[in-house]
Structure formats: C-alpha cells, structure tokens
C-alpha cells in the first residue's frame, strides 16, 4: 500500500482486518452455538409435527421429515381427545379467544383510566392505593387464589349469574391481575405527557373524561399497543388461572393442551402432541415476530409481573 511517490509512507486508510481473527471466531462461534440451543426446540417441534408415527419410532428427533404429513395438525386441531371429549384443540382455541378479547379490552380500559387518574388527577390516598397495587404484583397468586374463588361464587350467586367456572369469571381475574403492571405502564406514560397540555385543556373547559378521550387517548396509541401485546401474550399463555377458574368445557387452550399431551390413556402420539404444542404457541409467536421492538418494550414493562 505504501507508495514511494507519496512523501508520507506507511499505513494509510483503515487498518486491514483479519476476517477470522481468534476474537471473531470466539465471538461468532459462541453466539452460533447458543443460537442453536435456543432455536432447536422450535425446529424439533416443527419437524416432529410433520412426521408420521412410524417415522418417529425410527428415532431421531432432529432428522427432517421424509414423508411430510399434515395429518398430525388436523388431528391435533379437530380430533385429539381430552378425557371423553374428542373434538381437538379447536375448542380450547375458541375458548381462549373468547377469554382473551374481553380480558384485554376490559383490563386495558380500566388500567388506562387508573393510570390517567394517578398521573393527572391525584387525590388524597391515590398514591397509597397505587403502592398497594404495585406490591400486589409481587404477592404469589397462590395466596389470593382461594378467596377469589369464594368471591366469584358469592358475587355470582348474588347477581344470579355463574361466574365461577365461566369465561366471565376468568375475565375478571385477568383484569384484576393485569391491573398493577398496566396501571404502572399507563401512569408512567401519562406522567411523561407535558403538564402544559393538560393545563391548557383544563383552561379550555375540558373535564376528566373530555381530556382522557380527546387529548390523552389519541396521543398514547403506542403505549396502548405495548399494553395489548403484553396482555395478549400474558393471557394467552396463562395456565394457572385457567385451570382453577374454568371447567373442562371452558378450559383455555393451554390447559387443554396440557391435558391432551399429558393424558395417561392411549398410545402417545408425539407428532400430534407437537402439532398441538405448536398450535398453542402460534398466537404469541406471531405477535412476537410481527411486533418486534414493541414486544420487547411490552415484556420489559411487564417484567415485574414475574
């Protein structure tokens, strides 16, 4: 590179880099090995779900399928048995959807109003309730589960509706346990909105709901998306509340999946099991791959939920 005609010689321009320096080999090697560990289960799920049982019995979980068959998927969706019911995971899927939609809407509606009140309309004691709420996020659910069963049963009896064991009971439970983290999320967001905006709206005569609907709501779309991602993933993946507050006809997908795969009766059909597992994971995975950065924000916000 050094040119004799140039008065100054020696190194010039960028330092030549060795592509395969020991550091780089270590760096990328480590990342690659770890990536295999993380990616493997998804791969295994996919290939297993596309194999027939005879092929699986030949034995290699990692081998790609020779004869691709979608039969396990069909069976998992429409025919797999839990106990005496043999209508597949589809029922759990629709139950989950029916639980998910009202839970997400209700929990976000309530929490956003809470957050808004806490950020802009503080009243005596509001911070105390908020602190209790945040500490509540750390209380193991097991401590509160049984009394809530009683509350649901009693309120249901009082109102003349069946809350315990129904989808609506579960919706209430999800709304309650989603509240701490969502309230925190919205409170922090609304606190960051310039106070002048709020004051200007007050001067213009807008009230609690006017400011909420016309000022705060339109400008906080991103935080609503984060909240929706957080709630959809969390509620879809829930198992504990589903198993306790619903009954077999209203079991969400995760509970039904567990019952299908871990049922002790009959021959184990691993391909059907993996198809069912993938089906259950599909909704949160789709959200994850589509939403990317927002998902990370969502889970980071939901982290304290544990």
């Amino acid at each position: 590179m050094a040119d004799a005609t140039v008065s100054m010689t020696g190194p010039r321009g960028p330092k030549p880099k060795r592509r395969f320096s020991p550091t780089n080999i270590m760096l990328y090697g480590t990342l690659f090995v770890v990536a295999v560990y993380y990616a493997l289960p998804l791969y295994v799920m996919i290939v297993t779900s596309l194999k027939g049982m005879p092929e699986i019995r030949l034995g290699n979980v990692f081998a790609p399928p020779v004869d691709i068959t979608f039969e396990p998927w069909v069976k998992a969706w429409a025919e797999a048995c839990t106990g005496i019911n043999c209508d597949g995971l589809s029922r759990g899927f629709w139950n989950s959807v029916q639980i998910l939609v009202p839970s997400v809407i209700l929990s976000i509606a309530i929490a956003s109003v809470n957050g808004y009140a806490l950020a802009n309309w503080k009243f005596k004691g509001s911070e105390v309730f908020f602190t209790i709420l945040i500490f509540g996020a750390f209380i193991p659910y097991q401590v509160m589960i049984y009394p809530i069963v009683i509350i649901l049963r009693e309120t249901g009896g009082f109102l003349g509706v069946q809350l315990m064991g129904s989808i609506w009971g579960l919706v209430i439970v999800h709304t309650i346990f989603g509240m701490p983290i969502l309230t925190l999320l919205f409170r922090n967001y609304f606190t960051s909105v310039p106070e002048e905006l709020f004051k200007a709206a007050r001067v213009d005569g807008a009230g609690f709901w006017g400011i909420y609907f016309r000022i705060m709501l339109p400008m906080s779309l991103p935080i609503f998306v984060v909240a929706i991602i957080l709630q959809v993933t969390g509620i879809w993946n829930d198992f504990l509340f589903g198993v306790i507050y619903t009954k077999p006809e209203t079991y969400p997908m995760t509970v039904q999946l567990n019952n299908i795969v871990n049922s002790v009766q009959g021959v184990k059909e691993y391909n059907v099991n993996m198809a069912a597992t993938l089906l259950t994971g599909l909704v949160p995975l789709a959200i994850y791959f589509i939403s990317g950065k927002l998902f990370v924000r969502g889970i980071a916000a939901g982290a304290v939920k544990g």
């Binding site: 100054m8 020696g10 190194p11 010039r12 960028p14 330092k15």
Partner: peptide, 17 residues
Amino acid sequence: LEVSDGQIFIKDDNVTW
C-alpha cells in the same frame, strides 16, 4: 474512529493503524 482513507502522524510517527 477508524479512518476510511488518509494518514495520521503524531510526533512524525505514523499512527494510522
């Protein structure tokens, strides 16, 4: 920062790399 082209000398010593 790594330069894209050119040279830097400090005390007449080529320190570009």
